Amino acid sequence: NRLGIIYEIQGMKAVVLTSEGEFLIIRRRKDMKVGQQVSFENEDIYNV
């Protein structure tokens, strides 16, 4: 599992900021809110 803070939500995608200072786009889940810490898997990351 990886951890990140939700920075922005766009439709079915969420932008998270990881503890390494990396911004990633992941698959959104219904319970996500901006500012929330979430765990996610590598499979949830969109390749940009």
Rank of each mutant, 00 (worst) to 15 (best):
V15L: 12
R29L: 08
Q10C: 14
S39G: 04
G11H: 07
A14G: 01
R29C: 08
I45L: 07
D44F: 06
L24I: 08
R27E: 03
N42E: 14
G11I: 05
T18C: 05
I26P: 00
L17M: 13
E41W: 06
I25A: 09
D31K: 14
R2H: 05
F40W: 11
K30Q: 14
G11N: 10
G11D: 09
R2P: 03
M12H: 15
N1T: 14
M32F: 11
M12R: 13
G21Q: 04
G35F: 06
Y7R: 12
V34D: 02
L17T: 04
V16C: 05
K33I: 08
F40T: 03
G4Y: 04
K33E: 10
K30C: 15
I25Y: 11
E20Q: 10
I25N: 05
Y46A: 10
N1L: 14
E8W: 15
E8N: 10
K13S: 07
R2I: 08
D31H: 15
Q37W: 12
N47H: 13
I5Y: 07
I9L: 07
S39C: 13
A14E: 00
E43T: 04
R29E: 07
G4W: 03
E20S: 13
N47T: 11
G11Q: 09
G4H: 02
I45C: 08
I6P: 00
I5N: 03
Y46P: 05
G35L: 04
I25V: 12
M32Y: 15
F40S: 02
I26Y: 00
L17F: 13
E43C: 12
R28K: 12
G21H: 03
I45W: 07
S39L: 08
F40P: 02
D44L: 03
M12N: 13
F23K: 08
D44R: 02
E8K: 13
G11L: 09
D44T: 02
E41P: 07
R2C: 10
K13E: 05
I6T: 01
V34M: 10
K13F: 13
K30V: 15
R27S: 04
K33G: 04
V34L: 13
R27L: 14
I6W: 00
G11S: 09
Q10D: 11
E8Q: 13
E8H: 14
V15S: 09
I45Q: 04
T18P: 01
V15G: 05
V16W: 00
F40A: 02
I5G: 01
M12I: 07
I6N: 00
R28V: 14
M12V: 09
N42G: 06
K33Q: 09
D31A: 12
A14Q: 01
N47C: 15
R29Y: 12
E41H: 10
I25C: 15
N42T: 10
G35I: 00
A14F: 09
V15C: 13
V15H: 06
K30Y: 11
I25G: 03
M32Q: 07
A14M: 10
I45K: 02
V16Q: 00
V48K: 09
I26W: 01
L3H: 09
I9Y: 03
D31G: 15
A14R: 00
F40G: 01
Q37D: 05
S39Y: 12
E20F: 09
L17V: 08
E43W: 04
E22K: 11
M12F: 14
I5H: 06
D44I: 04
I26A: 01
M32W: 15
R28D: 02
Y7Q: 11
E43V: 03
K30I: 13
E20A: 14
D31R: 12
K33H: 08
R29V: 05
G4F: 03
I26H: 01
M32R: 01
D44Q: 03
A14T: 05
D44Y: 06
N42M: 12
Y46H: 08
L24S: 03
L17I: 07
Y46I: 12
F40D: 01
I25L: 15
D31V: 06
E43Y: 03
S19R: 14
A14W: 06
R27D: 02
D44H: 03
S19C: 13
L17E: 05
I45G: 05
D31L: 12
E8T: 13
L24Y: 09
Y46F: 13
V38K: 01
V48Q: 14
G35P: 01
I45R: 02
I45D: 05
E43P: 02
S39Q: 09
M32P: 00
I45N: 03
T18F: 03
Q10S: 15
Y7K: 10
I6K: 00
I9T: 04
K30L: 15
V15W: 15
I45S: 04
N47W: 08
V34N: 03
G4P: 01
V38I: 06
D44E: 07
I6E: 00
V16G: 00
I25S: 09
M32T: 05
K13Q: 06
G11R: 09
L24W: 09
R29H: 10
S39N: 13
Q37E: 15
N47K: 04
G4K: 00
N42P: 07
R28I: 11
F40V: 03
A14Y: 11
K33Y: 12
N1V: 13
V34I: 10
E20P: 04
M12A: 09
N1S: 10
V38R: 02
S19Q: 15
M32A: 07
N47Y: 08
Y46M: 11
I45P: 03
I26D: 00
V16K: 00
N47P: 08
T18R: 01
V38Q: 02
M32H: 14
K13G: 04
I5S: 03
K33V: 09
L17Y: 13
I5K: 08
I9H: 01
A14C: 10
E8R: 15
K33D: 06
E8C: 10
I5V: 12
V48M: 09
N47A: 06
D31P: 10
E41L: 12
K13C: 14
Q36H: 11
V48H: 12
V38P: 00
V15T: 12
F23T: 09
M12D: 15
E20N: 10
T18S: 08
K30D: 13
R29D: 07
K13A: 04
V15N: 04
D44K: 02
R28W: 15
E20K: 08
S19P: 08
L24E: 02
E22P: 02
L3R: 11
I9K: 01
R29F: 07
V48E: 12
I6H: 00
E43M: 03
L17A: 03
D31Y: 15
Q36D: 07
N1I: 15
K13N: 09
E20Y: 07
R28S: 14
G11K: 08
Q37R: 10
M32L: 05
I6A: 01
V48G: 10
Q10R: 14
K30E: 15
R2K: 10
V48W: 05
F23G: 01
M12P: 14
I45T: 02
E22W: 13
G21Y: 05
G35Y: 07
N42C: 11
Y46K: 09
